[in-house]
C-alpha cells in the first residue's frame, strides 16, 4: 500500500512539472515577451534593457530553471493590467467560484447518483426512461444554452430571480442550477451503466442463490463494486471545481476564476493566465491523487497487485 501511495504521489508531481514546462514553452512560443509588451515601435535600446532586466538574454535552459525556481517559490509574475501579483488576483477570486461549484457538486452527487442507481434497478421502467431522457438532455444541451434558457424563464419571464451579478444568494441560484443539472445528468448516466454492468455479474447471481434478500444484494454486493467507476467521474468533477465554471460565470457575470480567465485571455495578461493554468492543473492532479487513493481503498485487487509487484 505504501508503495502504491508513493508511486501515485510521484506521478502527481511529475504531472505538475510537465504542466509548468508546458506553460514555459507556450509562453516562449507566443512570441518575444519584450516585443509583445513593449510593442514593435519601442526603440531597440529599451527592448535590450527589458530583455536584460527579465533575464531574456540568458540561455534557454537557464531561463527554464529560473522559471521553475520562481514558481516553486510561488512567484508567478505580476498582472500586466494593474501590476498586482497574479497569484493574489487569482486567489481572491477562488471563494466566488467555489460558492457556485461546491453547491453544484452537491446537486450533481445528490441527484445524479441516486437517479442512476434507481434507473438501473428499474431498468426499462417508465422512471428509467424518464431519467435517461432527462440525462441525455442534460448531457447534450451546452451549459450556455441552458443558462440562457433559465435566464429567459426565471429572470425575464417570471422575474423571480436576477439574471446576473453577485449581490445576494439569490444571484447564485441560476448559475448553481445550470452547473448542477448538466453534471447530475452525466453522473446519472455513468452510475446507471456502472450499476447495470455490476448487476449482470456472476457474483450477484451467487449472492441471490445464497438467499441474500435483494435489497442486501444491492447494498452489500452491487454498490461497493459500482462505486469504483463512479468515483472516477466524481473525482473529475472535484478536479474541475476551480475551472469548471468558465462559461456559466461569463453568462451570469459572476466574478469568479473562470471570468477572470476570460478577461485575462482577452487582455493577453499572460501572468494571470499562466497562474490560473497552474491552479487548474494543481486541483486536477490533487483530485486524481485522491481518486487513486480511493481506488486502493475500494478495490482490494488493486491494493495487493501494486503492493506485491
Amino acid at each position: 500500500m505504501l508503495r502504491f501511495l508513493a508511486l501515485r504521489i510521484g506521478r502527481a508531481l511529475l504531472t505538475i512539472a510537465l504542466v509548468v514546462t508546458f506553460a514555459f514553452v507556450v509562453l516562449r512560443l507566443s512570441g518575444d515577451p519584450a516585443l509583445l509588451i513593449m510593442g514593435p515601435e519601442a526603440p531597440p535600446e529599451v527592448i535590450a534593457a527589458f530583455r536584460k532586466a527579465w533575464g531574456l538574454d540568458d540561455p534557454i535552459w537557464m531561463q527554464y530553471f529560473d522559471y521553475f525556481g520562481a514558481i516553486a517559490q510561488g512567484e508567478l509574475g505580476r498582472s500586466m493590467r494593474d501590476g498586482r501579483p497574479a497569484v493574489e488576483l487569482v486567489v481572491e477570486r477562488i471563494p466566488a467560484t467555489l460558492a457556485l461549484t461546491l453547491p453544484a457538486l452537491l446537486i450533481k452527487i445528490g441527484i445524479g447518483i441516486p437517479a442512476g442507481i434507481y434507473a438501473a434497478l428499474h431498468r426499462g421502467s417508465m422512471i428509467d426512461r424518464a431519467v435517461m431522457l432527462a440525462a441525455v438532455a442534460g448531457f447534450t444541451v451546452p451549459s450556455f444554452v441552458l443558462a440562457l434558457l433559465l435566464v429567459l424563464v426565471f429572470a425575464v419571464q417570471l422575474g423571480w430571480l436576477p439574471s446576473g451579478g453577485q449581490d445576494s444568494w439569490r444571484h447564485a441560484i441560476l448559475p448553481i442550477f445550470t452547473l448542477g443539472v448538466g453534471g447530475a445528468a452525466v453522473l446519472a448516466r455513468f452510475t446507471r451503466s456502472a450499476m447495470l454492468e455490476i448487476l449482470g455479474q456472476h457474483y450477484i447471481r451467487t449472492a441471490s442463490a445464497k438467499g441474500v434478500p435483494w435489497r442486501a444484494v444491492v447494498t452489500n454486493h452491487a454498490l461497493p463494486n459500482a462505486a469504483i467507476p463512479t468515483v472516477t467521474i466524481v473525482g473529475f468533477m472535484v478536479g474541475s471545481l476551480i475551472a469548471g465554471a468558465v462559461v456559466v460565470e461569463s453568462v451570469f457575470s459572476w466574478p469568479g476564476v473562470g471570468r477572470l480567465l476570460v478577461v485575462a485571455v482577452a487582455n493577453r495578461d499572460l501572468a494571470v493566465v499562466q497562474c490560473i493554468l497552474l491552479l487548474v492543473a494543481l486541483t486536477m492532479v490533487t483530485s486524481n491523487l485522491i481518486v487513486d487513493f480511493l481506488y486502493g481503498f475500494l478495490d482490494p485487487r488493486l491494493r495487493t497487485r501494486t503492493g506485491s509487484a
Partner: peptide, 12 residues
C-alpha cells in the same frame, strides 16, 4: 457455479 473466480464478489 462454473467459474468460481467470477462467482465470488471481488471486493468482499
Amino acid at each position: 457455479f462454473q467459474d468460481p473466480a467470477s462467482a465470488l464478489n471481488p471486493v468482499l
